[in-house]
């Protein structure tokens, strides 16, 4: 048995609704329009990923079940022909990932082995988050205790006990943040990255774990990872960023493992990450950012919002204008450039 990796813990956001949308009408402003409509209804997104592929947008969102009907109505009234699917489930977030592909590899391995196929994946600066159907949540939670150990939660039962109390106080704290210009703690910026987009069957996600393990062996740390809806229902698009290789190393490594897979690579790109107080609990944050990007004509390639962070990928030559757009709508105390 492989040695366990010690991690900090995991969070489970239960009783949520996942909605996946595929917009193929080359509507560049779709994510901003959609998020603006949701913000207008004060609907908070607990999880959001966006990915652009040749002008078509795939979005995965997670909302509170009380808001689900309002979301469906907004989609049907405003984007009637868009394909979408939905399930009830939970968001499982494992932390810290330490940007180490080995940790993501171990997670995908165990999910593959247990037959757990997440509906969506997202990445914050600390956590990998997976959307899971209700029926597989317990199985997925238990499976984490095979490759990982948690100093605070030694067993699934310990973890459940740690979740009780303080809910009302938490709500009061969230309500106290209503700044006109939301403040973020810091904007983290990383240049010299490449974005890979791999289209694969959901059941092959476990095999991707082996590719990620190879990246780890070559000392190539992740700066971004999401999964995104594909036009084929059983498939998914996996988008991730690594330090630029300058060659086709990354794609060749994946082709060796999954020969039939479709993939492409965009390079160079820059990755930004920002987090603010209770961003995951407040409506309108993603809408502000996406609208600012639209106005500044930023060609956003992919976005991930989970836990309390927003992480995104833009073409490297739009770095300065992206930072300007973020600073125009958020109070940014400092920009930390990662090596």
């Amino acid at each position: 048995m492989a040695p366990q990796t010690r991690l900090g813990g995991f969070k489970l956001l239960k009783e949520v609704v996942w909605i996946s949308l595929l917009e193929s009408n080359q509507n560049k402003g779709f994510p901003a329009e959609f998020c603006h409509l949701l913000a207008g209804e004060k609907i908070n997104l607990l999880f959001l990923t966006c990915g652009n592929h040749n002008g078509a947008w795939g979005l995965d969102i997670v909302a509170d079940p009380d808001n689900a009907d309002k979301v469906f109505k907004l989609i049907e009234e405003n984007f009637g022909k868009i394909k979408y699917e939905t399930v009830r489930g939970a968001v499982l977030s494992l932390f810290p990932h330490k940007s180490d592909p080995e940790i993501t590899a171990a997670l995908l391995d165990v999910f593959g082995k247990e037959g757990i196929d997440p509906n969506a994946l997202a990445y914050s600066n600390s956590a990998i988050s997976a959307v899971l159907r209700k029926e597989i949540v317990d199985k997925a939670t238990k499976s984490l205790f095979e490759p990982f150990s948690f100093s605070a939660y030694r067993t699934p039962a310990d973890w459940k006990l740690a979740q009780k109390g303080k809910e009302q106080l938490y709500k009061e704290v969230v309500a106290s943040y209503q700044e006109k210009q939301p403040k973020i703690y810091a904007l983290e910026w990383q240049d010299g990255q490449e974005l890979l987009r791999v289209n694969l069957n959901r059941r092959d996600l476990g095999v991707m774990g082996n590719a990620f393990r190879d990246f780890s062996g070559k000392d190539r740390a992740f700066s971004f990872l999401v999964s995104n809806p594909s036009s084929e229902k059983t498939a998914t698009n996996l988008l991730f960023c690594l330090p630029e290789s300058g060659r086709q190393d990354s794609t060749n490594m994946i082709r060796d493992l999954i020969p039939e897979t479709l993939m492409d690579r965009i390079s160079p790109v820059s990755v930004f990450s920002m987090n603010g107080p209770h961003f995951g609990d407040r409506y309108g944050i993603a809408s502000e950012l996406l609208t600012a990007f639209d106005n500044a004509r930023i060609d956003l390639l992919a976005l991930s919002c989970s836990i309390h962070s927003i992480t995104g990928v833009v073409p490297a030559n739009q770095g300065d204008s992206t930072i300007d757009a973020i600073q125009a709508c958020f109070e940014v105390p400092s920009v930390i450039r990662k090596p």
């Binding site: 813990g9 810290p96 600066n125 600390s126 740690a162 983290e188 987090n275 930390i336």
Partner: peptide, 23 residues
């Protein structure tokens, strides 16, 4: 955990070594 990472990154950029705990 996201805030822990942001604070850790700031402290590491100042030359500190950082330990992390979540409760």
């Amino acid at each position: 955990p996201d805030l822990v990472e942001t604070v850790a990154m700031m402290l590491e950029s100042k030359g500190c070594e950082v330990g992390r705990a979540y409760d």
